[in-house]
Design a protein around this nucleic acid. Structure first.
Lengths: 262, 262
DNA sequence: CGCTATATTGAACTCTGTCAACCGTGGTGG
DNA sequence: CCACCACGGTTGACAGAGTTCAATATAGCG
C-alpha cells in the first residue's frame, strides 16, 4: 500500500546526476559554497520548476543561466532580510522555511519549501530580500541570477510567462494562507496544512500518504498561527480520531477524506 | 491642521481630465460598461501606477495599451473567482475589496484597493481569477490587457522590471498580512490596519490623519481575522485611550505614535 | 418619516495561550 | 559504558482573549 517513496533523509532524493559545467561568469557576489550545477535540460525536477513545453534552444539558454548550486547546512540561512536581491533560487534537495519578523522579536513563518519550489521571489519588489530563508536540513539550491533571467524572459515568451506565473502562484498561495489564518480553527489549520504538504509531496513523486516533517512542532505552530502545545494537542486529537498516525516527525495520513471534512 | 484633502465621496478625487481616445481594438470579451481611457501620459496617478523614469516612447506605448476604463457600481464585481484572466486593472477612482472563499461559505478578504493600486495579479498563475473583486463604492478602473502588456514588457526593460516589482510587492504585502494574522492581537491588528491605510492615503496625496472607511466593520473584521463586534470594541478602546476619533466611517487619527506602540 | 442595515455594548461561554510537569531521545563527557 | 543534560514533544490545569448571542442605538436610504 505504501510502495511510493517516502520523503526521508535516509532515502535518496531524486537529485539529478552531477554533470560538470564550466562556469562562464564569475558569480562573486554570492558568498557561499558553490559548485557547478547539473544541467536544467537533464534535471529530473525540471517538470516542477519549468514550463513543460520549452524548446531545446530555450533549454540550452537555461543551461547557460543556471550555472551553480549552493549547499546550505541545516539551520544556516540562504539569504536574510535586507540582503541585496540578486538571484532567485530553486530548491534541489532538502527543505527550507521563510521567516518574516517584527522588530519586537515576533516571528512568522510564511512558508516551507521542498524540492522543485522557488525561493526569493519577494526580493524583486524592493531589491532587497524581505524574509530569512533557513534550511530545515542539509539542502542544496540552484542559483538563478535574476538579471540574466530577465534578459532571457525578454527573448523567450514562454519563459517570460512562466516567471509571471510563478510569481502569481506565490500570490495565490499566500492568499489561501491568509484564509487559513483568518477564518479557520486550530484543528482545521493543521488538517489543511497536512493535506497541502501531502499534495505537494505527491506531485513530486513522493508518497502523499506518509512523509517526514522536517520542521518542529513549534515551527508548524509559527506557520499556522498557533502555539506548539496546540499543534501537539491537535496531532493527538487526529490520532484519537483515526485520521493520522503520527510517529514523532514521521506522519502517516490514514484518512485524508476525514481530514478534509474537519 | 487638516488642510490636506480628505478622501471622501463628496470631494473630488484627483481624477485625470477625460481625454477621448479612439479604441484601436475591439475588446469584446470584457462584458461591461466601458469608455475610452484618459492617457497614461497625462494621468495624475501615473506616479503611483508606473515607474517614474519612463521615456516618452514608452509612455506612448502605454497610451496605446490602456485604451479603456470600466465603471463598477458599488457592490458589483469587477471579476469573479474562476473568471478567465485577460486583463490587469488599476483603480482610478473609488475602492475595492478582494475576497477568496471556501466551499463552506467561509470568506476571507485579502485586501482593499484604493486609487493607483493594482488588481488582478492573482489571475496570471492559473489563467483564471482566484478571488472576487468587489467595488466598495461607485468606482472606475483602467483596463490593461495582459497579453499586450507582456509584449510591451519584452520590448521595454523598465516596464518588464516594473511588472515584476508590482507582483513581488503583492507577495511582500501578503506576507506582512500573514504576520499580522498569525502573531498579533486584535488590538494590534486594527492599529496596524489604520496605520497602513493612513500611509497609503498620504502617499496618494490625501490626508493620512483623517479618512473615510468605505468598508463596514464586518469587512474590516473579515480582513483582519476577527468578528465585527471585536472591531467595534477595539475602535471604542482606541477612542477611550485618545488614539483615534471615530465618527462612524469617518476616522481621525489623533495619536499615530500611540497606535504604533500598541 | 420610517424602515432596514450597520454599529455599539453587555454577558456568558469557548477556544487557545500560558505555565508547568513529565517523557523519550540523542549527544557528551566522566 | 552509563549518567547526565539538553531538547523536543506530550499532557494537564487554569486564565484570558475573543466569539457568540442578544439587546439597543444609530445611520443611511427610499
Amino acid at each position: 500500500m505504501y510502495a511510493e517513496p517516502v520523503c526521508d533523509p535516509s532515502l535518496p532524493m531524486p537529485a539529478p546526476t552531477p554533470w560538470p559545467v564550466i562556469a562562464l561568469q564569475p558569480a562573486a557576489h554570492e558568498a557561499a559554497v558553490r559548485r557547478p550545477a547539473s544541467r536544467c535540460s537533464t534535471c529530473s525536477l525540471r517538470a516542477v520548476c519549468m514550463p513543460a513545453d520549452l524548446s531545446s534552444a530555450e533549454l540550452q539558454q537555461l543551461d547557460t543561466l543556471v550555472l551553480t548550486t549552493r549547499i546550505v547546512r541545516r539551520g544556516e540561512t540562504l539569504f536574510r532580510t535586507h540582503d541585496p536581491f540578486q538571484s532567485l533560487y530553486a530548491v534541489r534537495t532538502g527543505s527550507f522555511k521563510t521567516v518574516v519578523m517584527h522588530r519586537d522579536g515576533h516571528e512568522q513563518i510564511t512558508g516551507f519549501q521542498i524540492p522543485g519550489e522557488p525561493l526569493g521571489l519577494d526580493g524583486v519588489c524592493a531589491g532587497t530580500h524581505n524574509c530569512d530563508a533557513i534550511a530545515l536540513e542539509d539542502s542544496s539550491v540552484c542559483i538563478i541570477p535574476f538579471g540574466q533571467l530577465e534578459s532571457l524572459c525578454r527573448e523567450s515568451r514562454r519563459m517570460q510567462h512562466h516567471l509571471y506565473q510563478l510569481m502569481s502562484g506565490e500570490i495565490v498561495r499566500e492568499s489561501s494562507l491568509m484564509m487559513l489564518l483568518g477564518t479557520m480553527t486550530a484543528e482545521q489549520r493543521l488538517a489543511a496544512f497536512l493535506l497541502d504538504l501531502s499534495a505537494r509531496f505527491r506531485m513530486r513523486g513522493y508518497s502523499g500518504a506518509q512523509f517526514n516533517l522536517k520542521m518542529s512542532r513549534e515551527e508548524i505552530g509559527c506557520f499556522l498561527g498557533m502555539k506548539l502545545e496546540t499543534v501537539s494537542r491537535m496531532f493527538s486529537r487526529f490520532h484519537r480520531e483515526g485520521l493520522v498516525e503520527p510517529d514523532g516527525k514521521q506522519i502517516r495520513i490514514v484518512d485524508a477524506q476525514g481530514l478534509a471534512r474537519v
